[in-house]
C-alpha cells in the first residue's frame, strides 16, 4: 500500500510539474528540507536502536564493497558498449 502510494505520488508530481511548472518549491528548497527531515529521522531510528548502533562501525566496509561493486558494474557495461560504438563509427 505504502509503495503504491510512493509511485502514485511520484507520477502525480511529474504530471503537475509538466502541466503547471510551479516554482515555489525551488524558491523555498522544499526538496532539501524534506530530505533533511527524512535523513534526520533515519538517523534517529538508527541511534535509538542499540543493536543497530553497535553494528555501525562495520557498516562502512560493507557499504564501500556495495558502492564499488555497483559503480564498477555500470562502468564495465557502458565501457564495453562505448568500445563497440567507437568501432562501428570507425568502420
Amino acid at each position: 500500500m505504502v509503495f503504491a502510494g510512493i509511485l502514485i505520488a511520484f507520477i502525480a508530481g511529474l504530471w503537475i510539474g509538466y502541466k503547471r511548472r510551479p516554482a515555489f518549491f525551488k524558491k523555498y528548497k522544499v526538496v532539501l528540507w524534506i530530505t533533511l527531515m527524512l535523513l534526520f529521522l533515519m538517523g534517529y531510528e538508527t541511534g535509538s536502536n542499540a543493536e543497530l548502533f553497535e553494528a555501525l562501525p562495520r557498516i562502512g566496509w560493507w557499504a564501500l564493497v556495495i558502492a564499488v561493486c555497483g559503480a564498477l558494474g555500470g562502468f564495465c557495461f557502458v565501457f564495453l558498449f562505448e568500445r563497440v560504438l567507437k568501432k562501428r563509427k570507425s568502420l
Partner: peptide
C-alpha cells in the same frame, strides 16, 4: 519527497 522530486523533473 517523491512528489516534489517528480514536480522538479516535470517542470
Amino acid at each position: 519527497l517523491v512528489f516534489f522530486v517528480g514536480l522538479e523533473i516535470g517542470s
